[in-house]
Write a protein that binds this DNA or RNA. Structure first.
Length: 723
RNA sequence: GGGCGCGUAGCUCAGCGGGAGAGCACCGCCUUCACACGGCGGGGGUCACAGGUUCAAUCCCUGUCGCGCCCACCA
């Protein structure tokens, strides 16, 4: 106030006649409404029989008309400018003015002017020094400024009465159907009225300037970035902000009035009394302004007022500015913009460096959920059915930046299943003594599967960290889902089973410790996404934790934990096992058959891998035996695995036709790939302009496919010789 | 009237310049000693349409069609 940023003014404000208070522009909601456009004839003074036609969507406001405006260059009305009409029903003499606001294309080209009840008319009224007649009371009923017959009528009753009377007088020219937008109060739920009252205003334009600059300079950034544009758009066109409300709750405005209306704005009543005494030269009784501040004005102070400001508290020093503000786009104007303005003004520093604008959860039809529409999905019901972790995980995995989400219950169910999966995996670990060991060093493990899971865990951890830091929460949760479900549960725990009770106690112990470590890493990483189940498991897996999981440090995975050798070896095993399983399923070979597998033509490296992982492969693919051979045994189902041929000899059980069909299908697929590659590699433009690495990849790919096709042809030939 | 965004597998959605992915649903097999809220395997997509840029387009540009949202004083 003392800086001139807050002032009292008599202006048109948006008035909610239901709540009987002023509201801000932002609290007004435009609703598409099917209405009418009434054409009224206003008799011209002194010209018998001549009338001027005006069109209006709000007949009742004519009771407050103080002019008619026409465009200065509108020839139809040029001779009327400066003359007067006699306002029907009221009898007031109103002037005909020339003003560019009147649009010759609209309605009749002449427009009635009601300065006290329309924002445009208010401006016209100011330009022409027109009288401003307020015809409504605070409930939007007609007041004593109108003819007696209308007093006390509700605005809609008054509308009907005006139309009926005009018609009776023969002054209603015609009525057109007219769709237009009507302003409604978003809380009161009834049409708002432009209303002339004394209110407090904030000079938003001045406050906005530094807030605009801060975002231009990148001191505060929006994520996703496109909201920056929305912010600028609003801030650069900002209007004076009406900050007083005629409500019972909120910060009461610290303004006191003397008997003559003099205003004393002070921090306390004592100060106001003192100021008044000084002003009047004697002690004078004051009355305090009854209005309170707009809730968003108070909320705009939140980043520092909650921390003890204006005292320089340790909290203020520590938490102002904060770093990331998380909010919905619908709050950017209401709150984010105001916090920026207030923060920069009072603290001279932005309140936060990043605004993360999250998605809005919509209902199944894609509608924004709202209490008034009654389409709110109650999170408590979903939590009852699937758990809080499941809901939280679902929302985080659907939170793709810049996109709203339609909440599909099936995703919540899937998340619940995921939580159950984790729970069971942890139970398995516990039952097998796979618990955290304080002395465990993940960099020192020996067995390939253990080295591999350490490496994969570290890789996952680094990627998840990166995604979280980049605010890509959906990608982080997806990585975790895949790692935990696929890598950890699907491959690692299955591979660990034979080692836990195997004949090498040292490997068994190492595996137990590795699994315990990996599970801990999983809990640490998943905790932000599923806080409850991870915390429960964290505490139940070990009694002597240094801290609760919620307070545990975020895991760091150094380069040293990455092990490309182990990853390559296990990737080979995984692909081999998947291939064998696929063939088994397709050829209807039951696991119970425990068929053997023979690998032919292994390279040196693969031969070493096979040697080491032979029993693991047998275990994972449920095989009776696995061996290296020189030739494909007769009666084998065959598949290509890199440079090798893999044979499952099932002798007399084999269905030659079915097998040939399967191999031919596989071959056709690969031949199609080769054709595509050939086409690319014969394209001179591609060879000349594509990066060398891309060309090389293409060559390798083709070579690999060609090798596979050769193998497949050999396999087909062998079958043909049997058949 | 301005601005933003979306149309990818039946459904809900990721991906956004170098051979299309997930969850659910669907089909087949499996009561294998953590888990049937499970396991293994599989089918399914001219990435809305039309042009353009590029050696290369689901991805970039332009336009069209459809859908949604925000802002705005049209009587």
């Amino acid at each position: 106030y003392r800086e001139g940023l807050i002032y009292k003014d008599k202006r048109l404000v948006n008035w909610d006649p239901q709540l009987e208070t002023a509201i801000s522009d932002l609290e007004v909601e435009q609703r598409e409404t099917a209405g009418s456009l009434w054409y009224f004839k206003y008799p011209v003074e002194g010209e018998e029989g001549r009338t001027l036609t005006v069109a209006t969507t709000r007949p009742e406001t004519m009771l407050g008309d103080t002019a008619v405006a026409v465009h200065p260059e509108d020839d139809r009305y040029a001779d009327l400018i400066g003359k007067h009409c006699i306002l029907p029903l009221v009898g007031r003499r109103i002037v005909i003015v020339a003003d560019e606001y009147a649009d010759p294309e609209q309605g009749s080209g002449a427009v009635k002017i009601t300065p006290a009840h329309d924002f445009n008319d208010f401006e016209v009224g100011r330009r022409h020094g027109l009288e401003m007649i307020n015809i409504f009371d605070t409930r939007a009923c007609i007041n004593d400024a109108a003819p007696e017959a209308y007093r006390g009528l509700d605005r809609f009753e008054a509308r009907d009465r005006v139309v009926a009377e005009m018609q009776a007088l023969g002054l209603l020219e015609r009525v057109e159907e007219h769709d237009h937008t009507v302003p409604y109060g978003d809380r009161g739920g009834v049409p708002v009225e432009p209303y002339l009252t004394d209110q407090w205003f904030a000079d938003a334009k001045t406050l906005a300037a530094p807030a605009i600059k801060a975002v231009e300079d990148g001191r505060t950034r929006f994520f996703p970035e496109n909201w920056t544009k929305t912010y600028f758009e609003w801030m650069r066109n900002i209007q004076p902000w009406c900050i007083s409300r005629q409500l019972w709750w909120g910060h009461q405005i610290p303004a006191w009035y003397g008997p003559d209306g003099e205003v004393f704005v002070e921090l306390s009543e004592e100060d106001a009394v003192a100021a008044a005494a000084a002003h009047y030269g004697k002690k004078t009784a004051l009355t305090r302004d009854e209005d309170v501040l707009d809730t968003w004005f108070s909320s705009g102070l939140w980043p520092f007022s909650t921390l003890g400001w204006p005292e320089e508290t340790p909290e203020l020093a520590r938490y102002y500015p904060t770093d990331v503000l998380v909010t919905g786009f619908d709050i950017i104007f209401f709150w984010v913009a105001r916090m920026m303005m207030m923060g920069l003004h009072f603290m001279d520093e932005v309140p936060f460096h990043t605004v993360y604008v999250h998605a809005l959860v919509r209902d199944e039809q894609g509608q924004k959920m709202s209490k008034s529409k009654g389409n709110v999905i109650d999170p408590l019901e979903l939590i009852d059915a699937y758990g809080a972790d499941a809901l939280r995980f679902t929302l985080s995995s659907l939170a793709a930046p810049g996109r709203d989400v339609r909440l599909a219950e099936s995703r919540v169910e899937s998340s619940r299943n995921f939580a159950t999966k984790l729970w069971n995996a942890a139970r398995f670990c516990q039952l097998n003594g796979c618990v955290p060991d304080a002395d465990f060093d993940p960099a020192a493990v020996q067995a390939t599967v253990n080295r591999w899971v350490v490496s994969e865990t570290a890789r996952c951890g680094r990627e998840v960290t990166q995604k979280i830091e980049g605010l890509r929460f959906n990608e982080a949760s997806q990585l975790l889902y895949q790692f935990i479900y696929g890598t950890f549960c699907g491959w690692y725990l299955e591979s660990a089973k034979p080692l836990l009770d195997g004949n090498d106690p040292a490997i068994g112990a190492e595996t137990r410790a590795t699994a315990g470590w990996a599970l801990d890493q999983v809990l640490l990483m998943l905790h932000p996404f599923m806080p409850f189940v991870t915390e429960e498991l964290w505490q139940s897996l070990a009694a002597d934790r240094a801290s609760d999981l919620v307070r545990a440090a975020w895991p760091v995975h150094p380069d040293g934990l990455l092990d490309e050798e182990a990853e390559r070896e296990m990737s080979w095993v995984v692909r081999l096992v998947s291939g064998i399983r696929s063939v088994q399923a397709e050829m209807n070979i039951p696991h119970a058959a425990r068929v053997p597998v023979v690998l032919i033509g292994l390279g040196d490296e693969a031969a070493a891998w096979f040697e080491r992982q032979r029993s693991l492969i047998m275990w994972l693919a449920r095989l009776g035996d696995a061996s290296v051979g020189e030739a494909v045994p007769p009666g084998s189902v065959q598949m290509v695995h890199d440079e090798a041929t893999v044979a499952l000899p099932i002798a007399d059980v084999i269905d030659i036709d079915q097998e040939m069909q399967r191999l031919n299908k596989e071959k056709a697929k690969r031949v199609a790939e080769i054709d595509k590659s050939k086409k690319k590699l014969s394209n001179q433009g591609f060879l000349a302009k594509a990066p060398a690495a891309v060309v090389e990849t293409q060559r390798e790919r083709m070579a690999e496919e060609e090798r596979a096709v050769v193998k497949l042809e050999e396999a087909l030939a062998r079958l043909a010789s049997i058949g």
